[in-house]
Amino acid sequence: MSLVSVQNVSKSYWRDSFEIPVLNNISFEISEGEFLGLMGPSGSGKTTLLNLIAGIDRPTEGAITVAGTDVTRLNESELAKWRARHVGFVFQFYNLIPVLTAFENVELPLLLSNLSKKERREHVEFALNVVGLEDRMHHYPKQLSGGQEQRVAIARAIVTDPTLLVADEPTGDLDKISAEEILKLLERLNTEFKKTIIMVTHDPRAAEKAHKLRHLDKGELS
């Protein structure tokens, strides 16, 4: 069953008076429970495609449907609510809030829900338990290693039980061992928790973990 449907999507950016095409008439589908790897050289449009699917950017043309919702038709406010409910984000540079502890960082997306404090605590502890950092929940990002920070970021991404998990170069800033841990964690989230994952990567070892690989080059899928 298709969870994500990308239909004839194009995206261009404008720099001064120059139009820079990034994605050119892309169409593909992602099934529920799939672990998709997006590969391609720098500037090929991988991250742009990921951002469009995740609803943090808008295509110039085409439609993107995620779990039955055409995200290109939502306004800013609806899109923000939709992201909070349906998408978990993992960034290359973790993007944790430095003044919040691991617990508070993971709790952030839940502040947008109607959960009670007790329920939030239970969800956060569960998510930190999944990433194996329940003993570090009161540590601040600067007190954690890069791998641990990324695990906190993954806990933040899964704490709302999103429909879709998007990861942009999740191992790009990590050493080999930490990167392996993160990939194993993503693999576990996919197999054990049935999370649909789209991962942008340069790393062939990371790509091996994906069930399916799509290559982008000069804005076109191959």
Binding site: A54, A80, K81, W82, R83, A84, F91, N95, P109, L112
Partner: peptide, 16 residues
């Protein structure tokens, strides 16, 4: 700026 972008990504609204 980047942190606010992250918060927006997570679904924090203009009001937040």
């Amino acid at each position: 700026t980047r942190e606010y972008a992250v918060l927006k990504t997570l679904g924090f609204s203009k009001n937040h």
